[in-house]
Every structure is written in C-alpha cells, then in structure tokens.
Write a protein that binds this DNA or RNA. Structure first.
Lengths: 325, 325
DNA sequence: CTGAAAGCGCTAACAT
DNA sequence: ATGTTAGCGCTTTCAG
C-alpha cells in the first residue's frame, strides 16, 4: 500500500480545494468544464489513484461481494465463480473469493475476513457445519448457493439450490432403463447434497421395483482416499452392474479404478458434468447443473437484499439436465 | 457494508476509552488482564467486527495481494491461484483475484481496481499487451508470473517463468524419438509463451535434422475457434504424423477433432498436463509445469519487495517435466 | 495502565 | 462554481 499521491496533492498542484478535486474526478456537474479538465490532467500526470478504502469508509459501502467456495480446484466451483463474477461485474460489484478446502475452520475465518473487509454481501457455499451464520453475519446480507447449512427448518437466508433429488432420480432411472439390475451409490461427504442425492437414488430404485440395500450405499471421504476401495467393493464384491457417483471428484477416482476391475457391462452415472467426459471410452450418464443460472440467481437475490428489498427468505430450486453419452 | 457496531460502541459499553479497546483487542501488553477480558467479552456479545478498511487506512497497509489471472476456467491458472493463495495465506496475506478473460482492457481495469483497493502488491499473469505497467503501478511492487509483457529488454519487474523453450524442445524431441517424421505445431495466441514455444519447437526439429516448415506452423485464435480446422489442415492436408500443441485449451479442441480424422499413428504432444489425460485412448506427451513452485516463488519474491528488500529485478526460470503416456 | 486527540484519504453538507 | 469543515473507524503518540 503505497502510491502516496492523494487528493490533497492533486488539489495543491491544481491550486484548488480537495473538494473540487473530488467533485471533478467523480464527474459531478457542479464544477466548470475547464477546471475538471485541468484537474483530470494533473491527476493523470501525478499518477493519482483514488484510495478506495477511504472512499468506502466514507460512503459506508465497498461495492464488493464476498464469495466463499469450498474447493477452487473443482471445475464445478470454478464455473460457479465465473458465473458469479460475471453477474456481479455487470452490476458494478467486485468479488472477493475465498477458498476453504471444505474446512469449517477456514470457512469461519473467511467469513470474518469478509466482514472485516466490509463486503456489502456474501455468497456462501457452505462446508456444511453447525455454524451460526446469523450470529456471525449480523445484518450483512447473505445467500447460500448449491449447499445449505444443515441447521434445517428455520434458516433465515435465501438459498439457491439444484434439485438434487430429481437430478439423481433421473440418472439412476436411466441407468436402470439401460439394463442395470443392481445399482450401487458412492455418495459424497458433503452432508447436504449427500442426503438429497441419496434420497433421489432410493426413489429411483423403488420406482423401478428394486429394493434399496445398505450394503451398496457407500460414502466417500472428503479427500476421496477410499474411492478406489469402495469402487472395488461395490462392483466386484457386491456385483453391482450399475453405479451412481455423487460428484465429479469422486467420479475421477472411480474412472481411475475401473480399468483394472474390467467390468464388462457397467452402467455408470454421476452428478456434475465435465467436458472431458466426451473422451471417455465407456458410456456415462451425468447431470449437468445450471451453473450460470445458479450464479446469476444468487447475485440477483443478494443485490436485491443489499438494496433493501423487503422479502421473506426463499428457497429457489433449479433443475439439472441429464446427459447420456 | 453494515455491522454498525464500532469500537466506540464497545468502549461505551465497557466504560473505557476507544484507545483501550483498541489495545485490548490487538493483544497489546499495555492493558490489564481483567480489562482485556472484560472488553473481549463485551465485544463478542455485541458482535463487534473490526473495520478492516479503517485499520488499513490508518496502518497504510492492507495485507492483501492482488492476483491478475487471464482465464479462471483454465485448470492451469486455477492451480496457480491455489498455489498463490496457499503461499500468501501462510504469510498472513489475503488474496484478491481478478479474471481478465485475456482482455487487455479488463486487465487495465483490474489493475486499477487493485490499486484503489490499496493492495500491498500484485501478481500479474499478463494478457500480453503494450501496457505501461511501471506507469500504472507507481511504486506498488509487482511480480509477473508465467508470462511477461512483450516490452522486452528493460522490464523493471521480477518475473517467474517456466522454461518454455526447453520444455517444448523436450516434448518435440520425444515425439520424433517415437517415430514422427513431420511434426506440426498449433501455437497459442498468447504472444509471450507462443514465441518461446515456437522457438523450442524449431530447435527440436533442427536438432533432429528436420527442416522447419512454415506451412505446418499454425496459430490458434484466442477463443480457439479455428482449432478443429487447423487440426485437419495439419494432419490431413499437410500429412503431419506428429503434432505439438501449445496449451491445454488448444489440446482439448484437438482431442475433440481427432476421432473423425482417424489418423492411424499420430504422435501427439503438448504443453500443460491434465490429470484426465490418463483416460485418453491414445498416447500423449506433455509438459507438467511446476505450478506450486511458480506460485510460491512469486509470492516469496513479492513479499521480499513489499518488505523493502533492495534487489535488482530478476528473471527466474523453472523447468517443466516431460510426461509420456 | 488508561485517556485525549490527531490524522489516515475521502465525500457531503453547508457556506460563500 | 468553489472552499471549509466535519466525520467515517481505527491506531498511536503524548499526557497523565
């Protein structure tokens, strides 16, 4: 933090008051054209950059939104960030992104950081802990995206979510339609989406007259270290001929394990779509999430709140699209 | 920007002065244990969050670093961000990331944004324009990573770069060793890396006694829209039996086109490695970049500058590793 | 050990 | 059309 040339320097150089410089630089009509021109030139020559901190502290708003993301290496979140940035940028807001590595501790730190930086609002993809968001956030507006804190009923926040139940149900139904008789699941460690996706999975089984079997319902660790072993367990020991995988990071582990297991006719499906799935040798059924909509909807909602809209917290569900390859 | 409870409120509630609250909360030893305890409790109960803007403006430093990234959807940069965040975080710095979509205009905007936010330093992956960085940056320290502005000789900035020439040369040499007789190149639109990678490509050809041929040196557009066509051009029309591709985004386009061309024995290689290349049916030779080192080195260098280290701007080159699949 | 007061850079009344 | 001044929330001399 340097660039020590301040509005005072410009004022002195131009022989006017600080107020006039401020007005000139913010295009106020209350300053003569000539003066404005002169001041702008001088400011440029001096290499003046307004101090946004000072302005924000004065104006009581930063025009910055905080975004809390659990895994910046995950393509899904990268795209979500991009969508959020886009929507925010169009509305004139900057975005402060913090990655939490699915750690609750880091999430709390991130939240505090954002509050200290006085962000005007926050978008949270929760790592899924028992955090008391309302207490921490005070009256800073927040919108939850993709995941909700597990708290449950009385969440006083807006939520923009994917229809995980329906999305999963569609995929599993498709796997069965393609001939699978015994479909296992490797679920994710993220409690919120895991619960919903398990439900969709079971719905699909029951709708097809199949019985859910706890023996073929596995859960991946957060670091996915047990995925290879779970894959073998379900496909070899449990003789599943269909497999639903709850997200793209788990899918990568499964795909890596598959060749050595050499299952002849496996019906494979999973949540999250990746472009490179096009290059896979085997067929795969996936749910493509409406990422851009997710981001845009969340930002719209957040900006409404920031602008003082008086509305009840709502839950918005967006549908995923099933893609068969 | 809300959270209106300030240090003044805490002071009032605690019956002490603002100064004492400030001292208590910053663990100054110059305040009685009891007082500190009491103040901390009151602050918690009130839901007090220090205003980072006010503190930064007072302390003349933000403990925030700006990072300018040209394409946040590109896996390479995502990993770079992650590496930078990691290194910065360990040193107690936050990171403000801005994506420029390879646009010079957005890059300039991003730079200004960062200066206005008073970042303590900037890491730039340049979109590669004729921008006069020195003039814009003033005395804000900056380090260039992965790419340098084209200016050339007299860059007064530190640069942390990959050895593009050697990396490319190794790959192309490997393609030739594997039997390729006529190796084409689809280069990137990014001037800096493109120039170096072309050089490495040509070196390898010459070292193998092959003649560089402009007819098989193609360049992708920034949006890669011409990649399918270039691929056909080189492999079908120009009958190349080897192909070097300058980055991972171009590689994806090539891979997408390959099946329909059905080239029997193609030796394929490219810069940037992706984990999912493991799943490709055909062999591929890639350069894995030392991303973590890149990030860490850049941050170290930047922090040294921020802390006033007096050293000449240097260019640090890191080696890429060749991976054959 | 604690308080009073100045000042970081900026904008917005309120003058003139 | 421009200048004067107060104050945003914080830290830090300087006094006590």
């Amino acid at each position: 933090m340097t660039g020590k040339v301040t509005i005072k320097d410009v004022a002195k150089a131009a022989g006017v008051s600080e107020a006039t410089v401020s007005r000139a630089l913010s295009q106020s009509p209350r300053v003569k054209r000539d003066t404005r021109q002169k001041i702008q030139n001088i400011a440029n020559n001096l290499g003046y950059h307004p101090n946004g901190l000072a302005r924000s502290i004065r104006l009581q708003q930063t025009h910055t939104l905080g975004v809390i993301i659990p895994d910046i290496l995950n393509d899904f979140f990268t795209r979500l960030i991009r969508a959020i940035e886009d929507a925010a940028g169009k509305a004139g807001y900057d975005v402060l992104i913090v990655n939490t590595d699915e750690s609750l501790a880091k999430e709390a730190t991130a939240l505090n950081l954002m509050l200290e930086k006085q962000v005007d609002g926050v978008i949270i993809t929760s790592a899924g802990g028992p955090t008391d968001y309302a207490a921490i956030l005070g009256d800073t507006p927040a919108v939850f995206v993709d995941r909700m804190p597990p708290a449950g009923v009385e969440t006083p926040f807006d939520r923009v979510l994917v229809d995980n139940v329906q999305g999963t149900q569609d995929i599993v139904a498709q796997l069965i339609a393609q001939g699978a008789q015994r479909v296992g699941i490797i679920n994710s460690a993220v409690s919120f989406t895991a619960a919903e996706r398990l439900q969709g999975y079971q719905h699909a089984l029951i709708a097809a007259g199949l019985e859910p079997d706890p023996a073929i319902e596995a859960t991946a660790r957060t670091d996915n270290s047990n995925v290879p072993q779970m894959t073998r367990q379900l496909l070899v020991n449990q003789k599943c001929d269909g497999l639903f995988v709850a997200d793209n990071t788990i899918m990568e582990g499964v795909l890596r394990k598959l060749p050595e297991l050499a299952i002849p006719t496996l019906q494979l499906g999973g949540f999250d779509d990746q472009d490179w799935f096009d290059f896979l040798p085997q067929p795969i059924v996936t749910a493509r999430q409406p990422i851009n909509q997710l981001g845009k909807t969340a930002i719209d909602r957040l900006l409404d709140r920031i602008n003082g809209a008086d509305m009840l917290p709502a839950e918005i569900r967006l549908a995923a699209t099933t893609i068969s390859r």
